[in-house]
Structure formats: C-alpha cells, structure tokens
C-alpha cells in the first residue's frame, strides 16, 4: 500500500512561494519516491527549477519516511538550513506535509497533491482499491470494493451507464459492477448480488477519525 501523489503544476508551486526568497525542500524516501514525485531525483530537479526561478534553496533533505515520528530527528539534523529558510516546500504526501508542519516552526507548502492509497497492481501502476469508509462491504462483493471502484459508489448493482463492461465516465476504466458480477459468478455466489443492500452508513467513522488501540480492547470514535 502506498500513498499516491501527483506533482502540482510548477506554476502553482511558484504562486504559492510568491513573496518567499529562501526555501528549504523536503522529500520522502518512501511512497513519494515510489511514485517518482518526491525522491532524490525529484528533489534535485525541484532545487534546480526553484533556483532558475530566482529562489535561494537553503538546503534539501529526503526524509526516509516523512509521516514517521523519526521525521522530527531528521529535521533537527538539518535545523540550521531549515531555519535559514522562510518556507519549507514538502515533496511528500499530505501525511508527511502535516508531520513536517508540526516541527518546522515556519510555513510549509505542499508540492504534491495526495490522491489516494494505492495498491501496486503491476510495476509502476497503482490502483485505488479502498477509501477507508469504515463500513466494509467486501464480503458481499467478492472482494472488489464498489464504494471505491464504482464511480458512483453504488451498492445494489450497475447503473445504466455500463458500456461493454466499461464505466460511463471513461471507456478505459472497468465498470466495477461488471467485475463484481463476473467474480461472484465465478465463485458461485450470485445470490449475494441478488440480495438488497441497505443504504450505507456514511458516519461509520466519525469525522475526523481517531482510534486509540492502546486502550483496552481498542477504542474508536
């Protein structure tokens, strides 16, 4: 599982940096490296692009796992260069951005958009397979998530937009309900699709989600 990111357009990065001359850049050695959005190469390229745009880059750092608590120590080791900067440009997913923001003591700016948690289905190809809805229905859909894979998140079967097994929004995307139907048929459980599925509980996990598994039996709210 990886947190999937996409680089924001350079124009938007530069707009966000307007008014700042000195920038510290932090990348991430885990998901953003895998996605080729915040690894060593991308951080170096960003440094170059910012310098070309007239910025002074006070230092760069690729944090091993930006969302980890060790990020704090990592940043401490680069404190001097960071303190010399007016802003920290973070090339990691939003988890890393939020972690860095907690320690940076100065404005942070995301250089990436965080898209979804992806499963690597083939090298370099990530698919969103779960949206963490807190009310999992996979048992009735043969392990394919309709909440995520169906554009409309339908629970009782396909809409009328299915076109040769593809989704109405994009002919390159499989219709989730065609996939679910095929697999349920394969495993002899079409009865699950015939059964009515109640409206979903969209408050299954309170927003914002918190859980404390250190408490006895775990506790969520």
């Amino acid at each position: 599982m990886k947190s999937i990111t996409r680089a924001k357009p350079m124009e938007s990065v530069l707009n966000g940096l307007a008014g700042y001359d000195r920038v510290f850049i932090a990348g991430c050695g885990t998901c953003a490296t895998m996605c080729r959005t915040g690894g060593v190469n991308e951080v170096a390229a960003m440094r170059k692009a910012l310098e070309e745009a007239g910025k002074l880059v006070t230092g760069t750092l690729v944090i091993p796992t930006a969302c980890d608590t060790l990020t704090h120590e990592c940043m401490e080791q680069n404190r001097e260069a960071m303190e010399d900067a007016q802003v920290v440009l973070v090339m990691s997913c939003a988890f890393g951005v939020q972690t860095v923001a907690g320690y940076a003591g100065r404005p942070v700016q995301p250089a990436l958009d965080t898209l979804f948690f992806g499963l690597e289905t083939e090298p370099g190809h990530f698919a969103e397979v779960c949206m963490q809805c807190g009310d999992c229905v996979l048992a009735r859909t043969a392990g394919i998530c309709p909440v995520t894979a169906c554009h409309k998140g339908l629970l009782n079967g396909p809409c009328g937009g299915t076109n040769n097994g593809k989704c109405e929004i994009d002919s390159s995307i499989d219709c989730a309900w065609t996939l679910i139907y095929n697999r349920l048929k394969e495993i002899g459980r079409l009865d699950l699709m015939h059964a009515y599925c109640e409206p979903k509980n969209f408050q299954a996990m309170a927003k914002p989600g918190h859980i404390d598994i250190s408490a006895e039996g775990g506790e969520s709210r």
């Binding site: 009782n156 079967g157 396909p158 009328g160 299915t162 076109n163 040769n164 097994g165 309900w177 065609t178 679910i180 139907y181 048929k185 079409l190 699709m193 015939h194 009515y196």
Partner: peptide, 23 residues
C-alpha cells in the same frame, strides 16, 4: 424505475432490474 435492455453485459442489469421490482 428504468432499465437498459441493450446493456452489455445484460446479466448484472437484469439482477438490478429484479431488485427494482422487488423494491
């Protein structure tokens, strides 16, 4: 409700059709 008789594949549509009638 509605149904798409020419949908491809038709089987999942027909399951939904049946659910609509039952509903």
């Amino acid at each position: 409700a509605i149904v798409t008789p020419e949908a491809n594949p038709i089987e999942p549509q027909m399951i939904k059709f049946e659910k609509k009638v039952k509903a």
